[in-house]
Design a protein around this nucleic acid. Structure first.
Lengths: 214, 214
DNA sequence: GTCTATAAGACGATAGAC
DNA sequence: GTCTATCGTCTTATAGAC
């Protein structure tokens, strides 16, 4: 089984192959984000990764497989982060809002490829019903994580039970994605503070209306 | 000038050409929505419109021109409609919310090509800075229409001046777009009533917080 | 103004050397 | 496992008949 754990060894064959796969996936993510699934060529992907097309096809049977592996593996991590910020009980409400604003800005500005790639995933899934379930299960997971964080927030405020968490977390998720896209089109339209502010409106409103009807 | 207004005439040459252009644009919209800009072929577009490629190229110099004309001409009409619903002072608050929910559902479900086509526009604009301004000016127009409607709503409720209308209308716009995309991925995630409900939370919250700080 | 036919090139995917 | 070279297909765009 080639049990070689000694440190100064270069790289296992399995490791180099795994590294090649990762490099190809990274390159594919960039090309798909910049040119779209149909617009990106396997040639450009291979070249960006520093390999030839032959090496690519020895690791992935079809161009589509690269896309599907990205779709399966890289999603929604930034919103799980958002949920943790909301759930962080040590920070003040104002701190949380600022942190969320920064997160939105980071998602929209810093990782320039993220939002286009996710839009590309969405389009791909919308066009192929057999993939749709995969994407919607990711959305449900993100929403559920978000719902837990919002439940923690509600407990903090002493009003535990009666919040419509599914609806609220869906709205928070949709708002986040919508604002990221708007900011990407025109940063002036979506200042850094807006997401936190909007969350404040939502949570204040839902609290008032939920109290009122009980 | 060929001033022919008599009824039983077939069609002017200019009219047939305009009709051809329209048919080609309709077909292009469907193909771009279903396969993307890069994925759609001029052949399929021409065939769907009932013409040949030659006829297409006699009306549009490049495939890109079809896309750009669609991008310039068909946008945001459904949200202008939303704004009118919000502004309609004859209907009750509950009626407005139901109407908005129906509008969201219509945008997400009925016109199956609309949301994918707009996503395609967005990706195209994000990838070409020279187009970005065109899209963001459309967003600003939609937002401003929305802001007027919300101002009317605020006047109705007797609290005219002190609402952050730009911020609020941006949030409403982002929420709408985010929910449409989520509903397209999984209808169970976004029930028809959610948009109206979320608007209720937002407006209640913003009213409470704006009062509080004054 | 619309057609058919074709030019010129890019594409995804494969074969065989190393 | 990665390379280079190539195959066959599909693409956009053009040319010339009608």
């Amino acid at each position: 089984m080639d049990s070689n754990d000694s440190p100064p060894r270069r790289l296992t064959r399995a490791e180099t192959k795994a590294r090649t796969r990762t490099l190809l996936l990274d390159a594919a993510a960039q090309e798909f984000a910049r040119k779209g699934f149909a617009g990106a060529s396997v040639d450009d992907i291979a070249e960006r990764a520093g390999f030839s097309v032959g090496a690519l096809y020895s690791n992935f049977a079809k161009k589509e497989d690269l896309f599907l592996e990205l779709l399966a593996g890289r999603s929604g991590h930034q919103l799980a982060e958002a949920a943790q910020i909301v759930a962080d009980q040590d920070s003040s409400v104002q701190e949380r809002r600022q942190a969320l604003g920064r997160l939105l800005v980071a998602a929209a500005d810093k990782d320039v490829d993220l939002a286009p790639l996710q839009a590309e995933f969405w389009l791909y899934a919308v066009r192929r019903p057999e993939i749709q379930e995969q994407l919607s299960s990711q959305f449900r997971t993100t929403r559920d994580t978000l719902a837990e964080s919002l439940a923690a927030w509600a407990r903090d405020r002493g009003r535990p039970g009666d919040l419509p968490l599914d609806a609220l977390s869906t709205v928070v998720l949709a708002l986040f994605q919508g604002l990221v896209q708007l900011r990407r089109t025109d940063p002036a339209l979506v200042p850094e503070s807006l997401y936190g502010t909007a969350l404040g409106w939502l949570l204040t409103g839902i609290t008032a209306l939920t109290e009122e009807s009980s």
